[in-house]
């Protein structure tokens, strides 16, 4: 059932932004946070394909599922958290680290 809940996060909560395929990029953000917004704008300007979710806007069950997912990568559950290729996690607004992780 665990894998199903992860699947649900990916399929139903995420907003997809089309763009160039630079690998799988997932942004966990808060709609009220300035650093999350800067991270999102950075990804937009890169022109990369990515998915994002505003965790604060989710209903309670989905919010808990998203929090659990963020915690797997970033135990402090801070935002923004960017997960790249299900491998690397970049915490906070950090252009260099994101670029490094997607190899550009």
């Amino acid at each position: 059932m665990l894998s199903r809940s992860v699947f649900e996060i990916e399929e139903f909560m995420m907003q997809h932004v089309p763009g160039q395929n630079q690998g799988k990029i997932t942004l966990y953000a808060l709609s009220t946070c300035g650093w999350c917004e800067k991270t999102k704008k950075f990804l937009d300007n890169l022109g990369a394909e990515y998915s994002y979710v505003y965790v604060d806007l989710l209903q309670s069950d989905q919010k808990q599922a998203a929090v659990n997912e963020v915690r797997r990568w970033n135990p402090r559950c801070s935002f923004p958290t960017v997960v790249i290729n299900d491998e690397v996690c970049v915490v906070g607004y950090n252009e260099q680290e994101i670029k490094k992780a997607i190899g550009i």
Binding site: L30, T32, C33, G34, C36, D56, V67, C77, S78, F79
Partner: peptide, 27 residues
Amino acid sequence: EFTKELIRGLLTNEQRYGYWACPCRLA
């Protein structure tokens, strides 16, 4: 401009939760 967006976040959180939760943390 950045500061005003944070303040907008504070007011959003006031509407949502009734208090000024930090706009960059999950309340």
